[in-house]
């Protein structure tokens, strides 16, 4: 090999290395450095020791936003799996217009979250929203979708499910189609019920997909921003304050860069821990 050919791979990967240094390595180190400082960018930076960490542990809103995110995940993940799996099972049968249904369910996936949020904010309206008018017309009572502190996060979770379920339907369909048809035939001969077939054939087959839905939803839950930003501003009573919205507020409303960096570190750490736990327990299940 000549020297020249040896250089080429390095040239090819150099854009990546440059990117890594500027937008990954430096920021992580700099962010860590920032957590020990107080800085609003225009004034000189001040060393503040572990003040930011101390403040965070005593910050009601930090814990609140963390609880909100977990609450979101507790509602969102089961909803997501039930609807996606249910609809995928239906679509996996002999159904007419299968492609059409699939395209319709997929539509919200490709549309910007901003559109979805603006739309649903109006549908969720307490006084004149379509959903409440529907509920009243069938004899039920109005729901304070976005005005009741106990409902705001569940409402966002329902909307997020509506937005993403199409993608997971497709993923489940891929998983379902990989199950050999003779498994079901054999089970039928043995007299297995539909539930048993679902429990012992379908679910084990799509277990990796379920795991992926959980991981992706967890990351999604911790990335919630535009939904509360547009719909509720984090309220009522901070009940829809998401982790990213809280970082955004500290950084770009109050310019507490050091504290915002501390929050960023903490949330990233929490996400990684949660994902590691999920990996350990859910992957082992079956």
């Amino acid at each position: 090999m000549s020297r020249k050919t040896n250089l080429i791979p390095y040239l090819l990967i150099s854009p990546y290395v440059l990117f890594f240094l500027v937008f990954v390595a430096f920021p992580v180190l700099f962010s860590f450095f920032l957590t020990f400082h107080k800085w609003n960018i225009i004034s000189p930076m001040e060393y503040s020791g572990i003040d930011n960490y101390e403040r965070m542990f005593n910050d009601r809103l930090f814990w609140k936003s963390l609880r909100n995110t977990i609450w979101f995940l507790i509602i969102h993940i089961p909803l997501q799996i039930i609807f996606a799996l249910g609809l995928a099972v239906f679509l996996n049968g002999k159904i007419k217009f299968k492609g059409l249904f699939r395209s319709v369910f997929f539509l919200p996936v490709i549309v910007s979250g901003v559109v979805v949020t603006i739309m649903w904010q109006q549908l969720y309206g307490f006084n004149s929203g379509v959903l409440n008018r529907l509920l009243v017309s069938i004899g039920l009572v109005r729901v304070g979708w976005l005005t009741n502190p106990d409902m705001a996060m569940p409402s966002i979770a329902i909307m997020a499910t509506w937005k993403n379920v199409g993608l997971y339907i497709i993923l489940f369909l891929v998983g379902l189609q990989a199950v050999p048809a003779h498994y079901y035939e054999a089970a039928e001969i043995d007299g297995a019920s539909s539930w048993q077939k679902l429990r012992y054939i379908t679910i084990p087959a799509i277990n990796p997909t379920i795991f992926m839905v959980i991981i992706l939803s967890t990351i999604g839950g911790f990335s919630l921003f535009i939904e509360p930003y547009v719909m509720t501003g984090g309220g009522p009573l901070n009940s829809s304050l998401s982790s990213v919205l809280y970082i955004y507020k500290q950084a770009f409303e109050f310019y507490h860069m050091g504290y915002a960096a501390t929050l960023g570190f903490a949330f990233a750490f929490i996400i990684l821990i949660i994902i590691i736990i999920q990996k350990k327990y859910i992957e082992k299940e079956y």
Binding site: F23, F26, V28, S31, L34, S223, A251, M257, G264, I271
Partner: peptide, 17 residues
């Protein structure tokens, strides 16, 4: 590794960059 790194960490420093 970079893929698994949550963006919350790099958001603030990247803005400063």
């Amino acid at each position: 590794f970079t893929m698994t790194l949550p963006f919350q960490i790099t958001l603030i420093p990247n803005y400063i960059t």
